[in-house]
Design a protein around this nucleic acid. Structure first.
Lengths: 134, 134
DNA sequence: TTTAAGTCTATAAACAATATAGACATTGAG
DNA sequence: CTCAATGTCTATATTGTTTATAGACTTAAA
């Protein structure tokens, strides 16, 4: 499970919104500056997060973005699955995104990557955005 | 730590050589056929493994490839680090391949990925080629 | 009506993954 | 000595992904 820059940005942006949860929405520009994320790229990331129901947007002047649910209800696993796809190292060890890959030819080898998938999954399912507000 | 096709091929090919350890070297063509790996791609993979000292080659007629050391002495971690680079999900959580990335801005977030790196590393350091001979 | 926001879609630049091609070098067998 | 089988080396092709950037459009508040 290699994280792209996009996922790093998404996590930072969501933690930023978590700090404002219950308050006024945050403007893309402000989130961009505070976390050093390219503004136009962040726009796309927020649109994706919105499509998946993790954030809400408010258009027009005084608009901005806010979390769509409490920080306690959004896990790292959910966000990373959204942006990256499978948590597993190989497609054939993935549950949500299973696909056939060559390593299936060796059952024991595949088993190692399933075990890794499981521990990674547990770690990420167990952490929510609320755990990362300073 | 997302595995490329190349790593899957490398692991399958090495396990194949492990089965022949102590016997005659295996020809690229045979390893290719047995594991369904494109021959010309496998050539490149073996050259890389040879450069890193995991396999030896014998040229000319009756040539082929063999493990350069006992299967017990080659770990999955070594091979994956060779082919993929860092085991860590993010560069800033990597020890051997550290680099600065945005997620460092949030120490707690970074810590999660360091923990994941550690468990993945332990799993892969703890398994050698000998564990995968049927 | 103006202005400050978010929306949507296209595209570009750079890089990585996954091979394929072909000329070359080495070795053993006959 | 020559031929065939094998590994070596380097270049290139193809495709996809990542990481953005651009610009025209829509919405809402003042």
């Amino acid at each position: 499970m290699r994280l792209s820059r996009k996922s790093e940005y998404a996590l930072l942006a969501l933690v930023d919104l978590s700090r404002q949860y219950g308050k006024e929405p945050s403007k893309i520009m402000d989130v961009s500056k505070r976390n050093d994320i390219p503004k136009k790229y962040l726009e796309q990331i927020f649109l994706q997060l919105k499509g998946a129901g993790y954030v809400r947007s408010f258009r027009g002047a005084n608009g901005g973005y806010a979390l769509a649910k409490p920080p306690e209800e959004i896990t790292l696993a959910q966000i990373i699955r959204l942006i990256e796809g499978p948590l597993a190292s190989v497609g054939s060890a993935s549950i949500y995104y299973f696909e056939h890959t060559p390593i299936e030819q060796n059952k024991k080898l595949l088993q190692v990557f399933k075990e890794i998938r499981n521990v990674v999954s547990e770690k990420l399912e167990g952490k929510t955005l609320s755990d990362f507000i300073d």
